[in-house]
Design a protein around this nucleic acid. Sequence first.
RNA 1: GGCGCCAUAGUCUAUCGGUUAGGACGCUGCCCUUUCAAGGCGGAGAGACGGGUUCAACUCCCGUUGGCGCUACCA
Length: 515
Amino acid sequence: MTALDNESRTDPAVPLLQTRPIRTRVAPSPTGDPHVGTAYVALVNYIFAKQNGGTFLLRIEDTDRARSTLESEAAILTALRWLGLTWDEGPDIGGAHGPYRQSDRTAIYARYADELLERGHAFRCFCSPERLAAMREAQRLAKQPPRYDGHCLKLDRVEIDALVAEGVPSVVRMKVPDFGVCVVDDLRRGPIEFEWHAVDMQVLVKSDGMPTYHLANVVDDHLMEITHVFRGEEWVSSAPKHLLLYSYFGWEAPKLMHLPLLRNPDKSKLSKRKNPTSILFYARMGYLPEALLNFLGLLLVSSSEGSEVMSLDELTKRFDIANISLGGPVFDVPKLDWLNGRYLRELAPDALFERVRDWGFDRARLVKILELAHARIERLSDLGELTAFFFAGRLPITKERLLDVKLPPADVRKALALAMWGLDAERVFDRSVVERVLKSIGETLSAKFRDVARLFYVAITGSPTSVPLFEAMELLGRDIVRERLRVALEQVGPPPSAAEQKSWRGAAAPEELAT
RNA sequence: GGCGCCAUAGUCUAUCGGUUAGGACGCUGCCCUUUCAAGGCGGAGAGACGGGUUCAACUCCCGUUGGCGCUACCA
């Protein structure tokens, strides 16, 4: 199967000749845990590149200076490598089209933004956030499509220079036609039409000088010679802007294909409030990378009959763009469980031993666990019960056990929520961070720490008495801890409402984003 | 509110105008078995609704409904 075949399938009248070597990419934003959605998107791009003898690369989209972290970037690399989705070019290994981290490419974007400015395809905008908010509100009330009203388009050269000299902050916006339609040709969906007058004049360069996703993405995909982009459905509505930028620059746009978004069991977009979404969680939980990959692959390649157990190679052989279904698939953990069981059972005892050791019984970890248990055992056989929670995923916790503490039930809920949010907000996850976060919860609730601690002992270790908590949490790791807190919270009541979130933490919960 | 995407069992899907609508997970019955799993063999369970087009519609078209996404100086 070649790219040519795939294209003729969606548009038989105009078979485009694929002249450039196939190059695909995954371009995650390092703003949180490596998301399974990122793995899903990476998988398609990887498979498509390999199937066509092409190149698959990894690019880090860290233009959001406030939210991007090096920790997150490292975790993404680790997670994708764990899955076996290796890239041919990337920030860690370099390549002929580097650098592969957008924050290292700011000079490049500035140059292209200037070019658009000079050629009249973009303009400087000095509007305040307040004015923009008021404008959008008015448009909503008037049932108009939300769109920049062109206020700063009327500024002349002299006025612009004066404002810049005054030091008034500004952004660069792209110009968008007022009439006509834009046709986005999706590899799988076919043509999608958008009225230009409903497409916003997107900001391309923020007031801090950093490009937005839209500019950086287009410039990089061009410079990195990307030929095919498989990305999440959330990008469909910004495709017209991207296509317009390609035409402003006079560049050939890559072929686009938008993938449906992974869903929670209730069909909402997969989110960590309702489900574990981190690849690292699935690793810590004891899923095998090949099982997770196979599971995600089943959403791209379907077998009409027979076994659904497929290796990456087999998925690659059978992949066909025309067969990707477009309904948003539920991330069905029970099916993943079954698949993982299949893989586990096929392992020879020795191989299984190695997997188990690598998963949670390596010497270094075991020694740390023994240190914690050491003073608390009288017989070696006490170890089993005392340390079992280190080798478990979710714990069979009951509401009664969780509420059996010297805290009012409402505070139990609040404490668990605060712990989840507080720990998520931390870049590093170690005993001292855990201690600081948990103790601050005690202060917030004006409760004795020992009473707060008891609750977390139950939620995390399954018992009000166990080995030292902070160290245990560090060894358990962020992902298992988050899941145990989430499950505990679920036990004691409904998820925190928007109002509760606001009053408890003073802001809305940031939701993680997939690529 | 605006724009867009999507729609076969609880879930993932096959079907690309004519099928008893096929498979997988889950559920369930039986077999195997010292228990439980695993495994084998069965079972229940689906085309959202309403209009067209057609000899014929799950399949094509339109509408409705529902789900989802975007609507940021986040990606």
